[in-house]
Design a protein around this nucleic acid. Structure first.
Lengths: 240, 240, 240, 240
DNA sequence: CATGAATGAGTTTTCATTCAT
DNA sequence: AATGAATGAAAACTCATTCAT
C-alpha cells in the first residue's frame, strides 16, 4: 500500500528507511511510535513520508507485511537443502522450529514488529488480511490431518487441538532459545547466521520433538490398558 | 504503588474506577491509552488521579498487578474443590488449563491488559517485577522436576524444554477455547461462569493432556527400539 | 457553545480574548484564520483555547453569535429615545438604517465577521441557526404586510419583493456611509459615537427614504393614468 | 496574469482546468482552496500549474477575472435583442436585473467565486483592479445623472444615494429569484437558459421597477404638498 | 483532599512552492 | 514544456502533568 513514490525510491535509501521505520515501530507500540522521530532519524522531510505512505496506519501495515516478507524469505533460505524431499510432519515441525528460531534471532526487530501487529488497535488489526496466526494454525491443521491420513499421527487425535498444541510449541520457541543462548530479547542486533550453532539448537529441537512424539509420561507406565484407564481419571477431579 | 489516597477511597468508587481504567488500558496500547479520556469517563478530576498515582506509568503498573490479582483469585476459586489434595503434574496442568481458560473468558479485559504488559515499552516492562511469563516458566519447571522425581515424568526429559513446552501449551489455550465457543476475543463482556460448560471444555483438556502424556505419534509405531532409532534420524537431515 | 471554562474566565481576560479572536476571524477567512496565531497574540496557551472551545468551528460559531450580540446591543441603545412610540414602517426603516450604519462604523470588526459567516463553508453555515439574512428578510416582510394593513404602504405591492428591496437598501448602507465619510472599510478602529454626525447621516437617510416613499421617477410625469399605462411598458422590451 | 504557457494550452485542456479551478475556489474560501486538491482533480502536474501561474494568488486573481468575463458575456448575449436601441434608465435597470439573475442562475460557480473575491484577504482584494462593486456603483451613478439630465429621474435626487439604492436592489436580486424558484444557492448545476421562465421573472422585475419608480407609499397620501411637508417629518423622530 | 484550569511540547497531517529530470 | 518528488513551515488538536484554590 505504499505509493509508487516509495517504490521508485533508490534501493539504498528505501532500505535504510525501512530499517529505521521497522525499528521505530518495533521499539514502540503503535500509538507510541512517532512519525516525527522517525523522519528526523531517517533524515527525510516530514512531507516526503506522506508522499510515500497515505498515513501512519498505511505505513504500519506496510511495515508488517514487509517484516513478514523478510522472515519468510529467511525461512525459505533456511529450509533449503536441510532435508531431502518432503518429509513427514515431524520433519516439518523441525523445519518450522528452525525457521522460527532463526527468525527470532536473525531478525529480532521484524519479529517484534509482527508481535505488535497482534496487539495493535482492532481497527488496524482488521486490515491485516493475512492474520497470520490464523494462517499458521490452518496450515498446521492441514499438516496434522495429512499426517493422520498417512498414519504418521494417531488417528484419534483431535486435529484442531493438536494443531493448536503444535503451533503453540513452535511459536514460543524463540524466547526459549534466546534464554538458552543467554541473550536479551531486546537486543537490536541480529545474531549472525553462524552463531546459530546447530550444536546448541539441535538438542533443543530434539527434546521438543521427543515430547511431541511420545509425550511426557514415564515410559513403563504407558501400558495400553493403564493408559486407557487413566486417561481422564488421572487428571480429572481426583476421581479415582 | 498507588498512593494511600487511592487505597483510602470508598470501595465502590475505587472499584468503579478500576473497571474503567482496566478497560482504557486494555482497549488501547500504553501510549494510546489516555488519562484525559479515562478521567472524563470515570467522572473524577484529573488532579485526583495524580493524587492516587504518581503518573501514567505508575497507574499502568498497578493495573497490571490488579489484573493479575483478579485472575489469580479466579484461579483460586476455580480450583477449589475440584481436585482432592495436590495431585500429580497432569492434574496440575489440567487445573492450570482450566484456570487459564476461565480467566480468558471471565475476565477478558484483565487478560488483555496483561497481554499488553508484555508488549509495553521496555522501560515499563522492566519494572514489572513479577515478570510473570518468567514466573510461570519457573513454576512449571519446578513442577516438571518434581514430577520427574516422583517418577511421574520421564527422567530423560530436559526440564527446561519440557517446562517451556507445557507453558506454551497452557498459555495459548484461551484463544483456542474462544474459537471453539464461537466467540470473539474482542468482546468486552465477561462470559458468565455458567456458560463455561464443562461438557465443552473437558474434552478439550482431555485431548491436550492425551497429547502431553503420550505424544502424537501413532501408537503401534512406538516400539522402544524404533523410537530410539528414529529419534534424531527422522527429523534431522537424515544424517546419522 | 463555549465550555464553562470560558464563561468562568475573568471578564477582563475574556473580553481581551474576544477582541483578538474577532479580529483574527474578521481579518482572515475561516480557513485562513489561525488558532496558533490567535493564541500567540492573546498570550494564552494553545491548550487553554481548547479548554474554552471544542474546536476551531466551535470558536467561530461562538464569535459570530457574539458579534451579532454586540451589534444588536448597539442597535438597542442607538434606537433608544430617538423615536417616540412605535412609528410606521418608514420610521422603522430609518431606525434600521441608523442601526446598520452605526454597527458598520462602530463595530466594523464584528460587522465583517458576520459578513464572513455568510461565506463560510456550507458545513459551518448550516449550523448558524439564526441565519440572519433570512431572519432579517422575514422581519422586513412582516413589517411590510403590517404597513399594508394600516394603509401606510400601497396594497398592490408584492410583499416578498418589497421586503427584499427594502432589506437590500438598508443592508448596503454601511459601505455607502463609509465612503461618504471618506473612511476605509478596512479600518479596525471603531468610529466613536460622537463622530456619527447626524448632520451627515440624516440627509442620507432622508434621501433614501424619499426614494423608498416616492420612487425615483420625475414628479410631473406621474399622472395616475400614465403611471398605470406605463408600468410595464416603460421598462419592458420597448413594447408600447 | 497567467503566463503564456497557460494561454498556449489546448483550448480543451484549458477549459477543463478552468471549470475545476473555478469550482475549487468557489467551494472553498481562498485559504481553504487547495492547489494540491485542484491539480489532483484536474489531472495535471503540480509543477505545470506553477508554469501556468506565478502562485496561488495569481491563479485566484485570474479566476476572478475569468468569472467576470463569463458573466459579462452572458449579460451581453442575454441583453441582445431584448430592447431596441438604448432605452431609459428603467430599461437599463431591467436589463441589469435580468443579467444579474441570469448570471446567478446560469453560472452559479462563477457568481460565488466573485462573491468570494469581496471577502478575500485585503492583500488580495487590493489587487482586484476592477473592484467591481465600485465599478458598478460608478456606472449606476452615471446612469442616474444622465437620467436626471433627460428628465427621466427626479432632479432633486442625490445621485450618489440613488445609485447606491439602485445598485443594492439589483445586486441582491439573485438570491431572491433563487428562493422564488425554490432552488438552493449551493447547487452547482447551472440552471439551463430555458428554465429562466420569463413568466416567473418578469412579474418580479415589474414589481421591483414599480417600487423604484413610484415608491412604496400608498397612493392617495402622495399629494404634492403633503409629500413635501412630510418628507422628513414622517420618518424623523415622530416630530410633527 | 478534591478540583479543574493552565500549560506547551507533542502529535499527525497538509500546504504552497521549488527544482532536477 | 511537463513532471512529480522533495521540502519544511504551518496547521489543528491532544497529551500528561502541575498547581493554585
Amino acid at each position: 500500500m505504499p505509493k509508487t513514490t516509495f517504490l521508485n525510491l533508490p534501493a539504498k535509501k528505501r532500505a535504510r528507511f525501512l530499517v529505521l521505520a521497522v525499528r521505530e515501530f518495533a521499539d514502540n507500540d503503535y500509538a507510541g511510535a512517532s512519525i516525527s522521530r522517525l523522519v528526523a532519524q531517517a533524515g527525510i522531510a516530514k512531507g516526503s513520508l506522506y508522499q510515500y505512505f497515505a498515513d501512519k496506519q498505511d505505513l504500519f501495515l506496510y511495515l508488517v507485511e514487509h517484516a513478514q516478507g523478510v522472515l519468510l524469505e529467511d525461512v525459505a533460505t533456511a529450509g533449503t537443502g536441510s532435508i531431502g524431499p518432503i518429509g513427514g510432519i515431524l520433519d516439518q515441525l523441525r523445519l518450522q522450529m528452525s525457521a522460527t528460531v532463526s527468525a527470532a534471532l536473525r531478525h529480532p526487530q521484524e519479529a517484534r514488529l509482527i508481535q505488535r501487529a497482534y496487539q495493535s488497535p482492532a481497527s488496524i488489526r482488521r486490515k491485516l488480511e493475512r492474520h497470520d496466526a490464523r494462517v499458521r494454525h490452518d496450515h498446521m491443521r492441514a499438516l496434522v490431518v495429512a499426517a493422520q491420513t498417512t498414519g504418521e499421527l494417531a488417528p484419534d487425535l483431535d486435529p484442531e487441538v493438536t494443531a493448536h498444541v503444535l503451533a503453540a510449541i513452535v511459536g514460543g520457541l524463540g524466547p526459549l532459545v534466546l534464554t538458552r543462548l543467554g541473550l536479551d530479547a531486546e537486543r537490536d542486533t541480529s545474531v549472525p547466521a553462524d552463531r546459530l550453532d546447530p550444536a546448541v539448537l539441535e538438542p533443543i529441537f530434539d527434546s521438543v520433538l521427543r515430547i511431541v512424539r511420545e509425550g511426557v509420561a514415564t515410559f513403563p507406565g504407558r501400558g495400553t490398558s493403564r493408559r486407557r484407564a487413566s486417561r481422564r481419571g488421572t487428571a480429572q477431579r481426583g476421581a479415582e
